[in-house]
Simulated scan of single mutants.
Amino acid sequence: MNLAVAAAVFPLIFLGELPDKTMFASLVLASKGRPAAVWVGAAAAFLLHVIIAVTAGVVLFHLVDHRILDVAVAALFFAGAAYSWHIRNETEDDDDAAAVGGSALRTAATATGVIFVAEWGDLTQILTANLAARYHSAVSVGVGALLALWAVAAIAVIGGSGLMRVLSVRTLRVVTAVVLVGFGAFSLASAL
């Protein structure tokens, strides 16, 4: 492993992921409780994506039209926005009961699924694949990218766990719906 390559990759992936939809997804998930479980789920999803990116990512993105990936991601964002809007008026007590009653394993599995889908075909995944091809050092690029992604997830989870002290669940759901519509529109525009 080349530490210089890992150190060069870390800031690129970190800065690319900071304003990303997966950071927002981690923040929202962590705001509902069990931040450590959300981080574990996000970390697992990022691990899978880094493995995919450094091994088969370059080939996949040359074979599959990026527009198809953008349309699929847009559809998922619109579905998430519709769901957030639909449940915006449920009481906070119902949410608190669900958060307390949900297992850490279920929370981690949900976070893994959400982050895995959201990250598919993402800028940082493509960048990781390109860096692995450029440096010819899959392990070094993988370690640098993974540590950057895990750091961003930690920042999001810490922010999400404190977010509920300032915002109501209803407000968070409305904001989530609006942001997801924006991400969906951007993904759809990218596909066209």
Rank of each mutant, 00 (worst) to 15 (best):
Tyr83Ala: 13
Tyr83Pro: 15
Ser84Gln: 08
Ser84Lys: 07
Ser84Gly: 10
Ser84Tyr: 08
Ser84Met: 08
Trp85Val: 07
His86Cys: 13
His86Trp: 14
Ile87Asp: 00
Ile87Ala: 06
Arg88Asp: 06
Arg88Trp: 07
Asn89Asp: 14
Asn89Ala: 14
Glu90His: 12
Glu90Ile: 12
Glu90Ser: 06
Thr91Ile: 07
Thr91Gln: 13
Thr91Leu: 03
Glu92Arg: 03
Asp93Glu: 14
Asp95Ser: 14
Asp95Tyr: 11
Asp96Ile: 15
Asp96Thr: 15
Asp96Tyr: 11
Ala97Pro: 13
Ala97Val: 15
Ala97Trp: 10
Ala98Tyr: 01
Ala98Trp: 12
Val100Ala: 15
Gly101Cys: 09
Gly101Ile: 12
Gly101Glu: 05
Gly102Thr: 14
Ser103Gln: 10
Leu105Thr: 08
Leu105Arg: 11
Leu105Trp: 10
Arg106Tyr: 08
Thr107Ile: 01
Thr107Gln: 05
Ala108Ser: 10
Ala108Gly: 05
Ala109Lys: 01
Thr110Gly: 06
Thr110Met: 03
Ala111Gly: 00
Gly113Thr: 12
Val114Ala: 09
Val114Phe: 02
Ile115Arg: 01
Ile115Met: 06
Ile115Cys: 06
Ile115Ser: 06
Phe116Ser: 09
Ala118Glu: 05
Ala118Thr: 08
Glu119Pro: 09
Glu119Gln: 04
Glu119Trp: 03
Glu119Met: 12
Trp120Gly: 02
Gly121Asn: 07
Gly121Leu: 00
Leu123Ala: 08
Leu123Gln: 09
Leu123Met: 06
Leu123Glu: 02
Thr124Ile: 04
Gln125Cys: 03
Gln125His: 00
Gln125Lys: 00
Ile126Asn: 04
Ile126Gly: 05
Ile126Val: 06
Ile126Leu: 05
Leu127Lys: 01
Leu127Ile: 10
Leu127Asp: 04
Thr128Ser: 03
Ala129Asp: 02
Ala129Tyr: 02
Ala129Pro: 04
Asn130His: 14
Asn130Asp: 13
Leu131Lys: 07
Leu131Met: 00
Ala133Gln: 11
Ala133His: 08
Arg134Lys: 10
Arg134Gly: 11
Tyr135Ile: 04
Tyr135Val: 02
Tyr135Gly: 00
His136Ile: 10
Ala138Ser: 02
Ala138Trp: 03
Val139Gln: 10
Val139Thr: 09
Val139Lys: 09
Ser140His: 05
Ser140Cys: 02
Gly142Glu: 06
Gly142Arg: 01
Gly142Thr: 05
Val143Ala: 04
Val143Asn: 00
Val143Tyr: 05
Gly144Asp: 05
Gly144Cys: 05
Gly144Gln: 03
Gly144Thr: 01
Ala145Glu: 01
Leu146Ser: 00
Leu146Cys: 10
Leu146Trp: 11
Leu147Cys: 11
Ala148Glu: 02
Ala148Asn: 01
Ala148Ile: 07
Leu149Arg: 09
Leu149Phe: 04
Trp150Thr: 15
Ala151Pro: 12
Ala151Ser: 14
Val152Tyr: 08
Val152Cys: 11
Val152Asp: 05
Ala153Leu: 01
Ala154Lys: 07
Ala154Trp: 11
Ile155Ala: 10
Ile155Leu: 11
Ile155Asp: 07
